[in-house]
Structures are given as C-alpha cells and as structure tokens.
Amino acid sequence: MKYSLFFTMAVVASLLLPRSVDARIGERRESFERRLFSNGGIIYRDKEERKTRRSSGPYTQYLQYLGNSAEVRVYFKSDDGRQPTQSDLDKGTLGSGWEVHVLFVGGKSVLETYKRVGSMSEYEMNALLAVLGGGAYWEEAEPPVEDELEKDEPPPSAFGFDYVRSDGEVRAKKSGGGLMVFQKQLDEFLAKQHEGNLIQSAPQSVQGF
C-alpha cells in the first residue's frame, strides 16, 4: 500500500486544523515556548546534543513520512521554576526536572513526550494528564478482546496508546517512565504509512531465499 504525495500533503495539512478542545496538542510553537520559557524551561540548541536525545524518541522512525514541515525540538524544564542557563546545559548541571520533546508540523504541536529526570510519581502523572487534557477528561483505552468471535479490528496506531481524550482527538501512552500525547489522526496516518512501506519492501527483503 503506497500513499501518494498529494495524500500525504492533505493529511499533514489537516493536522494543522484547530480542534474543538483548547489543549496543548495543536498549540503553536511560539505560544508553547513562551509559556515554557517563563516557567523554568530552556531549549537544547547544540546540534549533536539534540541529535543524541532525539535518537531514542519513539517518533524518530516516522519522521520520514511527514516531510519538511515537521520539526522536533527538545527542551528541559526545571521542576521548581528555576531558570536554567546555557552554561547549565553545557556542563550537565541542570538538576532535577523534565525533558520534553515536541514534534511540530507546520509550526503546531502534534506530538509531545514528557520524561521526568528521575522517577515520575503517580501524582505527577495524573497532574500532567489533567494539564494536557485541556479541559477534557481521559478514558482508558479498551483492552483487546481475547475471544476471536467477538474481536473487532483494533484502530490503526503507530505508537499504541493507554488513554484517549474524551473528544476522541488525542491519545496518550505511558512510555519509558514518561508520558507521550499525540493526535489520533497523526497516529493513524503514520501507522498506515509504515504498514504500506513494510508491504512494499517485503518482496525485496526475502528475495534470494
């Protein structure tokens, strides 16, 4: 299954449309950074440092499907509101806080990961979900049905998810001791693109057996 350039552009464009709930996903980069930088946040600017930190991101393998309008930025935010400096970044003396990765498409957030430097408490997880809910609430994703006769086809998902926002537009997943939130439409689009790529490459990969 191969998707045309027109289809890809159409989906990417649709990710930029405003959503019914005023949440962080869909927020413009300028607004996101203004709030973060005024609350103890700083951006990683060193090219090699950014590359190293992005390499472990669960989104990395999917960036190829989003084109030039996609950009990943990596931030650190102190947990007490203290403003870190570039010197703190360079020396690795940031202290405790959060590492935040944001995938922007066309300047708007479509995926965000939050990882505590140290362990995240259950209370912090719940507080973070509340903040990222944007006034909506979260529902736990339904577990897969074991009975083959009653099993429905699961919704396509590149990342998998543990929670769905009540409006159905945003998903969340506990990931590596942190939390990742992302647009449902992005998640399904990447899943279909990746599956199409696997189907296309399968004959070549087994050639010669």
Rank of each mutant, 00 (worst) to 15 (best):
A13P: 05
S14I: 11
L15H: 02
L17W: 03
V21M: 05
E27V: 15
R28F: 03
R29V: 14
E33Q: 07
R34A: 09
L36S: 10
F37R: 06
S38L: 11
N39D: 13
G40K: 02
G40S: 05
I42Q: 04
I42R: 00
Y44N: 02
Y44M: 05
Y44F: 10
D46K: 07
E48A: 15
R50M: 12
T52D: 11
R53V: 12
R54Q: 12
S55C: 09
G57Y: 06
G57W: 04
P58R: 01
Y62D: 07
Y65H: 15
Y65M: 04
L66A: 05
N68P: 12
S69N: 05
E71V: 13
E71L: 10
R73V: 04
K77H: 05
S78L: 01
S78D: 08
G81N: 00
G81W: 00
G81D: 02
T85Y: 03
G92L: 02
G95L: 00
G95N: 03
G95P: 00
W98R: 01
H101S: 10
G106C: 00
G107S: 06
K108A: 14
S109K: 02
V110R: 03
Y114L: 13
R116N: 15
G118A: 04
S119N: 13
S121K: 02
E122R: 14
E122K: 13
